[in-house]
Amino acid sequence: MPDVREWSRHDAARFVRVPGPEDDKYSRGVVGLRTGSVAFPGAAVLGVEAAWRTGAGFVRYIGGGRAADAVMARRPETVVSTQASGARVEAWVIGSGTDAATRTADDEHELREILDDAVPVVVDAGALDLAAGSRAPLLLTPHGREFARLQARIGASPDEDRARAAADAATRLGAVVLLKGAQTLIADPDGSVILVDAGTGWLATAGTGDVLGGVLGALLAANPDAPVAEVAATGAWLHGHAGRIAAGTGVHGGGHGHPIVALDVAEALPRAIADVLA
């Protein structure tokens, strides 16, 4: 059995940076997102919104068409370009709102360039199939069905013990695996696992995973020397806490709360961060 430890508010506070007088937009962290598609332009908006709301100093969006237009309409602070080549960032988020089945050769070439660089990459949804063999420090963020497909791709046997299964996948891939669920598990390639139980059932709605990707990208960019697994656990904790705030379930998840949409979670992130820093 892997060593499993639970992540707390106190743990998360260590990775939330308060900008000081010497900081500028670059030192606060530059995040690049290559997300969204013609079919799912909203994924780009949600990830970008979350990166800004988590405290990124500079956000770059790579893409065009409806997704880029939607990003600029919602967040005009964002720098938009059509190519990732030459973009200077401290962390990437890729794959959210994309489908590997519709990926072009140019798309794949650019994604593989990102995955083979030295910058940490949050890999979600339609880019998970490219993770194996990549050289960049990776943080994979599958939900249950995506994780089952990932297991099959790397030759891992199904395991009812989620912690053990996540740890096995992380070791096989040499990457941190964040397995989404009512209890989120973050597995490090060294075999250790962190459990984050800080959410609400109302988070089980479309787009909240895209928000999580933006949170993770912003935190990785702001904490370049920190262990990826611990930064990931902090992102999952903040995302869950923002979900509780948005749903009105209280700090400890008490009460029934009410339905939310993904953008509600992104908009609640500043309060979630303020709570951690209080």
Rank of each mutant, 00 (worst) to 15 (best):
A132Q: 14
K180Y: 09
R60E: 09
I94Q: 08
V276G: 07
A73N: 08
V4P: 09
V176K: 07
V18W: 02
I186S: 00
R14T: 02
D107F: 08
L179H: 03
D23G: 09
V93E: 01
A169T: 13
G63M: 09
D264H: 10
A84F: 05
S81M: 14
R145N: 12
P189Y: 06
G257M: 11
G213W: 02
I245C: 02
D190E: 00
H252M: 13
L111D: 12
T184I: 05
W92H: 02
A262K: 02
D117E: 11
D23L: 00
A221R: 09
V59S: 04
R5C: 02
A246M: 03
S37F: 05
V119D: 07
H239Q: 07
R271Y: 09
R164Y: 07
R75W: 11
R66E: 14
I260G: 04
D117K: 10
R75P: 07
E108K: 13
T141R: 10
H256D: 15
H239V: 01
D188N: 14
L216F: 14
A266S: 15
D168V: 12
A242F: 11
L203M: 15
V211H: 10
R172K: 15
G95T: 13
D11N: 14
E22W: 05
G126H: 04
A152N: 10
A132K: 06
E267S: 11
V71M: 03
P189G: 04
G47W: 01
L220H: 03
G214T: 04
E230Y: 11
W92I: 00
M72G: 02
I94A: 03
S157F: 00
A125G: 03
N223T: 06
D116W: 12
H239E: 00
A39T: 11
P41W: 10
L195P: 03
R88Q: 15
G64V: 04
G235N: 12
G217A: 09
V71R: 00
P2T: 03
A43P: 08
G36S: 04
L179M: 08
V30R: 15
W92M: 06
A100I: 00
A170Y: 01
L203C: 01
P227Y: 09
D24W: 07
G42V: 02
S81D: 13
T141F: 05
L178A: 14
A236Y: 07
S157A: 15
D225G: 14
Q83M: 10
P137M: 12
R172S: 07
A182R: 13
P227V: 06
V177Y: 09
G191A: 08
A167F: 06
V80D: 03
G235M: 12
R28A: 08
A182E: 13
